[in-house]
Write a protein that binds this DNA or RNA. Structure first.
Length: 810
RNA sequence: GGGGGCGUAGCCCAAUCGGCAGAGGCAGAGGACUUAAAAUCCUUACAGUGUGGGUUCGAAUCCCACCGCCCCUACCA
């Protein structure tokens, strides 16, 4: 190959296609099963098959691939699969709007994206692909559901769900968008509705989910999960309501019980109707109705003035036996604690506000500091007006009160979580049917394992009623009771799509295995996931669910570890050129195709890694890719014949820079610092081009080989081309990662910075191992330094080995 | 209201343990090549690190306050 052909005919797209064909023919990326190597399971979050792979997919996937390639070259057998999170509402919308069946729509999108995925030049093992809407997959969702049901971890309950009054359907949480909680489809504010729904008892695992000691995850995700789980320690206290009986409250401040001057229940509290006196009935009923009609946004607006209604009932404060009025107010939420509170205006800002408005008594039970001029006091201090607690500090008072409650049968120590059980019912077609049958005689009966999967009917009618097509399909829902054989009805709700993604990493191991969710033999070889990468937006949904799921799997005896993913890295989000999140509606989605055609996949991959730190994301700037493309072209030109001009280059410098490059890239890749790796590769390219033809041939080629090796994870096609150009045997991706020799990086001479009072005055050359005394003497003898120290007292001097001398003069 | 992150050249970003502010790229300027342009190659200007304090021999880096932008969360009893 002549140099002109390399220079003039740089056609990256064609070159890359050639290598992709070769990789595919030679099975280069079939998963390495060599038991002699340590395993590495690398996983990137699976995409939703929206139809096209855009830059928003390249951004998380290609650096993840670079890391997986790096591990492979480092001697690991690497499993790096990909699949499609194929259930979900967009497919159903396409069916309603365009009359295409969700299955067809989804599968044709997947077909399209498979080709696009291959273009990225990743080492994905496409044989392990999983498509979650395939019965072969969702059958196991149903199987898990049955196991959960057997263990009492799946149950049916009436639960308030987000309901869109315009679409006439419930919504998944992820479909409720924006700070004002609107329906994603029509923009209508959602309301809460009570419906019988299936839930998973994730709260049983709340305590264990708070333990992150077995995983190396970003602090941020741990904090988000911890806050989401929201563990609060305190006490439950029973308040006797006259003519009704005890109603329990949860409080984190049992020490303030003597200051509880009224009692508040959520309007949805089941006891409300019974305790309300006839005189208050009308007012209470109208308030309850109003609260029910209110949108979530209005209901939870903090700036809104507190409202409430007296029920006519009185409760007895167990500490001082005083009668306190019972109110209902919408600032008390049925979804937290017990749905009822003891109101202590003296120590709680919300209660203070309410007490002020309705003229209720306020008693302080913690002495505020003298200079305190606020209203409710929530800080530390001795107890007052509190009988046997008087004088005790808050912590001690809490303890004493809790013991007292226990001894007198008025309450108990309690822990409450903000975390709710996971509501998995969706009134949609395009999801996994919940394998339950309702029989008049036997109740809710699970579908026997051998009858799985419960298949989605193919001939469903899609109508824009908001009603699930399954509800309109007698052929689907009419069935026989598995227990008594009598007529029965199938559950028509389907599962939340987060169920699919809670265990997909296990299915990848054996996507066609039909004796269980995954082949345990494969599991032993590969589990758990060693490195997971994905966006932070999944911190409290997917990432919490999959931890929960794994713990249940462990308790079912399916796996013998506690956590699904040992390490997690959150990449940032690539934004549109306008700095906004890429979305079709904004019209700022970048299609990678034109860039791939023009500059090649390697250029796009490297550009995305070069933009900035991977965890930072940032706006797309189409001009930047030019520079990366130029660099790749220049890198490739290193292997062409060079024209020798100028003096012989320094071989020691070539060694030093080569070792340095390997070290830098090795350390950067370990820490996901792709941007600085690419910069180092560029720097080396510039240097190498500068000495081309002016150095010993063998040394030059050795340097290029090492360059190609460290380039390989970033620009797999270009590295392959270089490797072949150097006459090396296929493939560069089967080579070992080069090591580096620390001793070759060190120079014999160093530049010593000389400061006087911290200001730079001179730079002097010195031997690398120069002694402190010598260095200081050298510094003092500098002509540039002398004027600054002459006639002044030298107070002290600081020597940082190999770096600087700082002379402090008075 | 609560929690977190980020402010370095016109722009994207580097800077190891607190030790020479600049590695890389974009855009710009000048030049070479060309009939010309593109491409390519060479050369090159550009900031003192958001603001104000503090700690230190020494601060982009640590601490405090403020300003600006972004993200998460929100009556959690």
């Amino acid at each position: 190959m002549s140099e002109t052909s390399v220079k003039r005919e740089y056609r990256p797209a064609a070159m890359e296609r050639r290598w992709q064909e070769r990789w595919s023919e030679s099975g280069l990326y079939e998963t390495d099963e060599d038991p002699g190597k340590p395993k590495h399971y690398a996983l990137t979050m699976l995409p939703y098959p929206s139809g096209d792979l855009h830059v928003g997919h390249w951004y998380p996937m290609t650096p993840s691939d670079t890391r997986a390639r790096f591990m492979r070259m480092n001697g690991y057998r690497v499993f790096f699969p990909i699949g499609f999170d194929a259930f979900g509402l967009p497919a159903e919308n396409a069916a309603i709007n365009r009359g295409v069946h969700p299955y067809k729509w989804t599968m044709s999108n997947i077909e399209n994206m498979r080709g696009q995925l291959r273009q990225m030049g990743t080492m994905f093992d496409f044989d392990a692909e999983v498509v979650t809407c395939d019965p072969e997959y969702y059958r196991w969702n149903q199987w898990f559901f049955l196991k959960f049901f057997e263990k009492g971890l799946a149950y049916r309950d009436e639960a308030p769900v987000d309901w869109c009054p315009s679409c006439n359907t419930t919504l998944a949480r992820e479909q409720v968008v924006g700070p004002d909680r609107r329906c994603e489809r029509c923009g209508t504010p959602v309301i809460k509705r009570n419906l019988a729904q299936w839930l998973f008892r994730i709260t049983d695992y709340a305590e264990e989910l708070l333990d992150f000691s077995r995983i190396d995850w970003p602090e941020r995700v741990e904090t988000l999960q911890r806050n989401w789980i929201g563990r609060s320690e305190g006490a439950e206290i029973d308040f006797d309501i006259q003519g009704y009986g005890p109603v329990t409250v949860f409080t984190t401040r049992p020490d303030t019980l003597f200051g509880a001057t009224f009692f508040v229940m959520s309007p949805e509290h089941p006891a409300v109707e019974e305790i309300t006196t006839p005189e208050q009935e009308e007012e209470v009923r109208s308030y309850v109705e109003k609260a029910g009609r209110m949108t979530e946004i209005d209901r939870t607006d903090v700036t809104r003035e507190k409202t409430g209604v007296f029920t006519g009932a009185y409760a007895v404060n167990p500490a001082n036996k005083e009668q306190i009025p019972v109110y209902i107010a919408d600032y008390v939420l049925m979804g937290y604690g017990t749905g009822a509170i003891m109101a202590v205006p003296g120590q709680d800002e919300r209660d203070w506000e309410f007490a002020e408005k309705y003229g209720l008594p306020i008693v302080r039970t913690v002495e505020p500091p003298e200079d305190f001029d606020g209203k409710a006091y929530t800080g530390e201090g001795p107890a007052i007006n509190s009988g046997f607690l008087n004088g005790l500090e808050v912590e001690e008072a809490k303890e004493r009160m809790t013991s007292w409650l226990g001894e007198h049968g008025e309450g108990r120590r309690a822990v409450t979580y903000r975390l709710h059980d996971w509501l998995i019912s969706r009134q949609r077609y395009w999801g996994t049917p919940i394998p339950i049958v309702y029989c008049d005689a036997c109740g809710a009966v699970p579908v026997p394992e051998e009858d799985l999967p419960v298949l989605l009917p193919e001939d469903a009618e899609f109508m824009p009623t908001g009603e699930s097509p399954l509800k309109l399909d007698p052929d689907f829902y009419n069935t026989k009771c598995p227990r008594c054989g009598g007529p029965a009805t199938r559950e028509t709700d389907t599962m939340d799509t987060f169920v699919d993604s809670s265990w997909y990493q296990y299915r990848y191991l054996s996507p066609h295995y039909d004796e269980g969710p995954f082949d345990p033999e494969r599991g032993k070889k590969w589990l758990p996931v060693d490195q997971y990468t994905g966006g932070i937006e999944h911190a409290v949904m997917h990432l919490l669910y999959t931890r929960f799921w794994t713990k249940v799997m462990r308790d079912l005896g399916l796996v013998d570890f506690d956590e699904p993913m040992l390490r997690l890295f959150n990449q940032g989000t690539i934004l549109g050129p306008d700095g906004e999140k890429m979305s079709k509606s904004r019209g700022n989605v970048i299609n990678p195709q034109e860039f791939v055609d023009r500059y090649g996949s390697d250029a796009l991959r490297c550009f995305l890694m070069f933009i900035g730190p991977w965890n930072q994301g940032g706006p797309w700037d189409g001009r930047g890719i030019e520079g990366v493309s130029r660099w790749l072209r220049r890198a490739l030109s290193l292997v062409s014949e060079g024209e020798a001009t100028g003096a012989e280059a320094d071989p020691a410098e070539l060694d030093r820079r080569t070792e340095q490059l390997v070290k830098k890239v090795t350390e950067d890749l370990e820490a996901f610092r792709f941007n600085t790796s690419v910069a180092a590769l560029m720097e080396q390219t510039n240097y190498l081009l500068g000495i081309k033809g002016r150095i010993d041939e063998a040394k030059w080629e050795a340097a290029l080989r090492r360059f190609a090796l460290v380039l390989a994870p970033f620009a797999p096609h270009h590295a392959e081309e270089m490797w072949a150009g150097l006459g090396e045997p296929y493939s560069v991706h089967e080579q070992a990662w080069p090591g580096y020799d620390e001793s070759l990086i060190k120079t014999e001479e160093i530049t010593l910075v000389v400061q006087v009072n911290g200001k730079l005055r001179d730079r002097i050359q010195a031997p690398a191992d120069v002694a402190e005394e010598t260095a200081k003497e050298l510094a003092l003898s500098s002509v540039k330094v002398r004027p600054h120290v002459e006639g002044k007292e030298i107070r002290k001097s600081i020597y940082v080995p190999g770096r600087l001398v700082n002379i402090v003069v008075g």
